[in-house]
Design a protein around this nucleic acid. Structure first.
Lengths: 194, 194
DNA sequence: ATCTTTATTGAATGGTCATTCAATATTAAA
DNA sequence: TTTAATATTGAATGACCATTCAATAAAGAT
């Protein structure tokens, strides 16, 4: 068991890492830089995270937890209703909250590590399984969808959401952005049609 | 204008960079390592690519060109027919060729750079515009789709393809992989229905 | 109050990094 | 053949890197 001080410090360090990674990228964020940013010697960071790999692995957990944390209130909210209002629902799925709480650059940087690290891959996979499961649960609540294969539906909806986030991150123009969001929302609506 | 030697050397260097990045990741592939791998001093590499950023930028162009190169024959083939056979079509879209010719790890690593580099973002955007445009052209050839909004369709199809590639890269089990591919292919088929 | 564990510091290490430079070799142009 | 441009080499640079270590300070346990 780690003490309170230890837990706080760890959080502080990971958060500082994340903040710097947002600006400079993970690959340009050294332990020395994190230390400078937080006003502590690098050796203290290594006291809590013995290697750089462990530090990165903790950053990834931090990010994935955040994503889940953004998602959970949406689920709660929708769970409170007894049917899945497609508009509220898709509005939430494509809302900016996702982007705001986890920086896209850091996110995709971490994601690219799954191809060389089995543990990281598993962590990402588990996140997505959880997201799909939660979505399925929401859809199951909706009486209008009773006859539908909700497991399948949640796969189909999420593949659009994921593709959309990827594609939308390249779009600069705000009008164009909204236009595309509308297209993808409609696409989800199509799937939800009885 | 660069000489033949110059052009060949540049290609050789970028290719060596790519090969090492596949194994160790871009961030762990130094100019010295590339030099060692190709049997040349690092200074020669810097003779052709004055800074590391320029080297990376050229790696990205190399990758994006490859993606376009995989895609082009598919288009040609489909252009030869006068209608879009949905099965051939989706088989091709989800074929393994994409993954084989451009390593996913390197690809997403490069992609993550769009968030801190406007020029890279533009390059990726242009690639995707081109892909969508080509797809639209194919769809336009199909008489069965004459009444459909093919520009919209190509957006909707690609968002599935992109989401699928993202999601599928986390799937390890081959059976599960095929299962999911089938789901996403069906999803595209749905869109193509008259 | 003493002992033990944890937290923190700062200096030092060897290694690797991107980049520079001057010298030499090769090729192309005149 | 002379000249100019390009290609290639290898050594050197200082900056930064992750990591180690020994010493001190603070907190917690007994």
């Amino acid at each position: 068991m780690s003490t309170r001080v230890s837990a706080d410090r760890k959080k502080e360090i990971i958060h500082g890492f994340y903040e710097l990674a947002k600006v400079n990228g993970i690959e340009n964020t050294s332990i020395a830089k994190i230390g400078k940013h937080l006003g502590m010697p690098p050796s203290l960071i290594m006291h809590y995270f013995p290697t750089r790999d462990i530090l990165i692995s903790n950053l990834i957990s931090f990010i994935l937890k955040r994503i889940l944390k953004i998602y959970t209130p949406i689920i709660k909210e929708l769970r409170a209703q007894n049917y899945t209002d497609p508009d509220t629902f898709t509005d939430r799925l494509f809302s900016r909250d996702w982007n705001l709480l986890v920086d896209d650059g850091v996110f995709y940087s971490c994601f690219s590590l799954i191809f060389r690290n089995e543990m990281i891959k598993k962590e990402f996979r588990n996140l997505h399984l959880k997201l799909r499961d939660d979505l399925k649960e929401i859809l199951d609540q909706d009486e209008n969808l009773r006859k539908k294969n909700t497991a399948l539906l949640s796969e189909q909806i999420f593949v659009i959401v994921e593709g959309a986030y990827y594609y939308l991150s390249m779009v600069e123009d705000q009008e164009e952005y909204q236009e595309k969001v509308k297209i993808f929302k409609d696409q989800v609506h199509q799937l939800l049609k009885p």
